[in-house]
Amino acid sequence: MALNTPQITPTKKITVRAIGEELPRGDYQRCPQCDMLFSLPEINSHQSAYCPRCQAKIRDGRDWSLTRLAAMAFTMLLLMPFAWGEPLLHIWLLGIRIDANVMQGIWQMTKQGDAITGSMVFFCVIGAPLILVTSIAYLWFGNRLGMNLRPVLLMLERLKEWVMLDIYLVGIGVASIKVQDYAHIQAGVGLFSFVALVILTTVTLSHLNVEELWERFYPQRPATRRDEKLRVCLGCHFTGYPDQRGRCPRCHIPLRLRRRHSLQKCWAALLASIVLLLPANLLPISIIYLNGGRQEDTILSGIMSLASSNIAVAGIVFIASILVPFTKVIVMFTLLLSIHFKCQQGLRTRILLLRMVTWIGRWSMLDLFVISLTMSLINRDQILAFTMGPAAFYFGAAVILTILAVEWLDSRLLWDAHESGNARFDD
């Protein structure tokens, strides 16, 4: 018995066209964080690309023209004298008006014999932002004059995390709450300039795509075929072959399989920071003279006294001054041990922890910024005066060393310790 099946006739004509040209192939790229070699397709503007294995951002879609970056830099340069030299806060102490600005706080630190601690604050609040705007201006002028731009481009990517104007702005709020127990506070004209400078700096850093600047100024022929001998440069993120001198053909720094002496430098910085954190938390970090009496505060006791007036601000200072430094030390110690013992479990967790400490590390400088600003506000000789204690130097040095330890660690070593050939990683 035959089955009668109805015929289905399409209502619209289906047209099949042959592909007349070869589909576009992607360029081969190595991930600078996990060293995976993959094919990167062509990316349009405002599109980002991520590593298929570790999800690290390979290409950032946010990109401004150099002219727009230069305009932002010149605007920031105009704001800087007002943000640093004009009063941020006014207080009335014992019937006398006192003005506080950024430069005055750094000068008070240096004047009291601790120039190293003052230079830490100076670099993060004044030096690094000033280098940022002058570097962008150098790129703008240098591109037109045919100057060598490689050193500036190499420095810009590392400079971003040292620009800490946003953290200093939080420190202004913390210092205001600490001082309000002794005097009446009012915002100064410099505060508005400083807030504007923070906003412009944040926007500029978020749109400063150094890798795209490398592509514009020093374009290189990408690798179009897969080759395990391809290496990625950690300076400019170019994937290719080393030249005859073993250097990256684009930025001219040595092109090595792994960062040289990464573990040794990381261990040295980490152990030194552990040693410095002990006096930083045991010795007094601030000293207040009130009517001839002397009151010393460690980091913890200062947080407890701050909690009596504002528990939320005390929580912020606790996280930045105690929780973050010790968390960074514990995480980095764990990561280094996992590399030495070739741990194969929990790779995803370790990668996330490394990215976390990379982002939060700079916030530990908050305590030094609060001390710097408070020193310029309260300084009335023996009637009422505020000065920093010996722990300030140890704390600042420990924070900087932990930042350097994270920067010096080559994250690809975590993958080397893991089993080879993993296309995915999980716990």
Score class of each variant (00 low, 15 high):
404 L>K: 04
232 V>F: 08
131 I>G: 02
117 T>I: 01
84 W>H: 09
267 W>C: 14
353 L>N: 10
164 M>L: 04
236 C>P: 00
308 S>L: 08
56 A>M: 14
422 N>T: 15
298 T>V: 09
142 G>N: 01
305 S>L: 06
4 N>S: 08
416 D>G: 12
390 P>G: 06
275 V>H: 07
264 Q>H: 02
67 T>S: 06
306 L>Y: 00
356 M>E: 08
249 P>K: 06
87 P>Q: 07
387 T>G: 02
228 E>F: 07
135 S>I: 01
249 P>F: 09
162 W>Y: 05
324 V>Y: 15
67 T>H: 13
28 Y>I: 13
154 L>G: 02
32 P>N: 14
349 T>H: 14
184 H>R: 05
297 D>W: 03
176 S>C: 06
93 L>F: 03
421 G>N: 14
9 T>Q: 13
203 V>H: 05
32 P>I: 14
24 P>L: 10
106 I>M: 06
263 L>S: 07
30 R>W: 00
329 V>L: 10
57 K>W: 06
45 S>L: 12
328 K>A: 00
274 I>V: 11
381 D>M: 05
180 Q>H: 06
325 P>H: 06
108 Q>K: 11
282 L>T: 09
204 T>C: 09
128 A>I: 04
339 I>V: 07
267 W>L: 14
220 Q>T: 07
40 L>C: 09
278 L>P: 04
251 C>S: 03
420 S>D: 13
419 E>Q: 07
326 F>E: 04
53 R>A: 10
173 G>Q: 03
159 L>Q: 02
253 I>T: 04
295 Q>I: 07
352 L>I: 15
39 S>V: 15
268 A>E: 02
112 Q>K: 05
388 M>G: 07
128 A>F: 00
264 Q>K: 01
28 Y>G: 14
262 S>E: 04
175 A>E: 02
230 L>G: 11
29 Q>I: 13
66 L>W: 15
13 K>Q: 11
190 G>H: 03
299 I>H: 01
316 I>C: 13
198 V>T: 14
361 G>Q: 01
31 C>P: 00
317 V>C: 02
389 G>M: 01
87 P>D: 06
316 I>M: 13
356 M>Q: 12
51 C>A: 00
387 T>R: 07
289 Y>R: 01
396 G>Y: 04
93 L>R: 01
317 V>M: 03
390 P>T: 07
393 F>L: 13
85 G>L: 06
225 R>S: 10
175 A>W: 01
340 H>C: 10
97 R>I: 01
169 L>M: 13
111 K>W: 01
148 N>E: 06
52 P>T: 10
79 L>F: 15
387 T>D: 03
297 D>A: 12
415 W>L: 12
206 S>Y: 15
228 E>A: 09
196 A>H: 11
366 L>H: 01
110 T>I: 04
401 L>T: 07
72 M>E: 07
214 W>N: 08
166 D>C: 15
172 I>F: 12
133 V>D: 00
235 G>V: 02
265 K>G: 02
139 L>M: 06
195 V>S: 07
351 I>Y: 06
286 S>G: 08
140 W>N: 04
34 C>N: 00
292 G>N: 06
345 Q>Y: 14
304 M>W: 08
61 G>F: 15
26 G>T: 10
368 L>Y: 03
268 A>R: 00
112 Q>I: 06
244 Q>C: 07
332 M>H: 10
297 D>M: 07
275 V>G: 04
212 E>F: 14
44 N>M: 11
386 F>A: 02
51 C>L: 00
16 V>M: 09
326 F>M: 05
353 L>Q: 06
182 Y>C: 07
81 P>Y: 11
68 R>W: 09
81 P>E: 13
89 L>C: 10
92 W>L: 05
415 W>H: 12
257 L>C: 08
232 V>E: 07
398 A>G: 06
